[in-house]
Design a binder for these strands. Sequence first.
DNA 1: GCATATTTGTCCGTATGTATA
DNA 2: CTATACATACGGACAAATATG
Lengths: 230, 230
Amino acid sequence: MESQGLLADRALLGRTSTAERVGDILRTRISAGYFPPGARLAEEEITEALGVSRNTLREAFRLLTHERLLIHELNRGMFVRVPDVDDVHDLYAVRKHVQCSVVRTAPTSPELLAPIAETIRAGKVALAEQNWQALGTADISFHEEMVALAGSDRITELMRGVLAELRLVFHVMDNPRWFHEPYLARNEEILDALREGNGARADELLYKYLDDAERQLVETYVLRRAEHVK
Amino acid sequence: MESQGLLADRALLGRTSTAERVGDILRTRISAGYFPPGARLAEEEITEALGVSRNTLREAFRLLTHERLLIHELNRGMFVRVPDVDDVHDLYAVRKHVQCSVVRTAPTSPELLAPIAETIRAGKVALAEQNWQALGTADISFHEEMVALAGSDRITELMRGVLAELRLVFHVMDNPRWFHEPYLARNEEILDALREGNGARADELLYKYLDDAERQLVETYVLRRAEHVK
DNA sequence: GCATATTTGTCCGTATGTATA
DNA sequence: CTATACATACGGACAAATATG
């Protein structure tokens, strides 16, 4: 009878809980940089904006905290996480272990590779249009689709979380062109190796890719820190 | 001020939230089989037993739902998950990818291997005492310690979740001796390979181990299903 | 350093919707 | 079909911690 908020369709769609939908909204805003790393998410502000109760919002917070997108400081509130250098190393350790193992043993039928090819096409379009935001999205999608080859829900979900965190890292860096542009060609090389059914080569190429990306991110983190300390 | 429940120390230890501690309690009970797969967790019953409010308990439920230990049926309540055959396949897919990749590249200094050796020793003690519960715990600890070699928080946490789910599978099977006993010797072989710094061999042994275990579990699931349908 | 205002942590009561007997 | 039981989500309350002046 009330619920005049953005979520009034609850009764109709009723599939998912309100907290989950609020979580989706917040996750999207965080990934998009609308809530940048370090930002504080005030309860009252958001409950008003979304028209949900505090209890419901807090459940949504819990969800995102578990995904490491938010951190909870006791009696201070929720903040968008600011990944540090250790996080970068850890995220790339996961990527190296999981992604490389997946591509080495993945099935490589053309139908399965089609979604991956599509992300590369999208990347080329974004590059031509100089849409760096879209280029970054395409790059991330490439990796998401690649781990989907494993056909494992848990691995897919794991990587979705890892890549969401990585978006946070990218926001800290805030230079999508410089970071994503060089990797488009390398994505295509990896796809070619998969097309040939050469998992070992795809593994090798991907490992170097990840190692280079990690090094590049860490170097920039160190520079930033130096600036900040100065 | 009141809170005469089991969590009266809240104000003192204050480190973690009440919901997290409730989650820890429930997780322990589930892993121990006190709440077996399929059991329904009624809100009122548990709020009374632990002396916490519904909101607090629901936050704890959310945590465990995310760990896949509970499932939430909309408008019906929370239940301890009953993993099915697909879950078994998926869990072992994760294990093969992650654990094998880790052991192949893990550092193998004696200090790092010590905790792994300790789990094997504990397994032997359990076997001698015919304590099958302890044998299962030792087996799981072996794998937990092995992935810890990667030195990655996220991988450790991932595997903690996977192994917690696996405990659910074992409870469905409910025959710890038959399942864990044959693997103690194989654990030791893997450790020996690591001691020699032979990651490739450890990988190979572990892969066969996991493949055999998976097959064994799936076969039993199929049998159970046949019995149940009958 | 202190007093005040704001925000969070926790809990309760209630209205509404949904599933089961 | 009705009745009962339960889950969802809201709003309000108060203590405790924090931020502000």
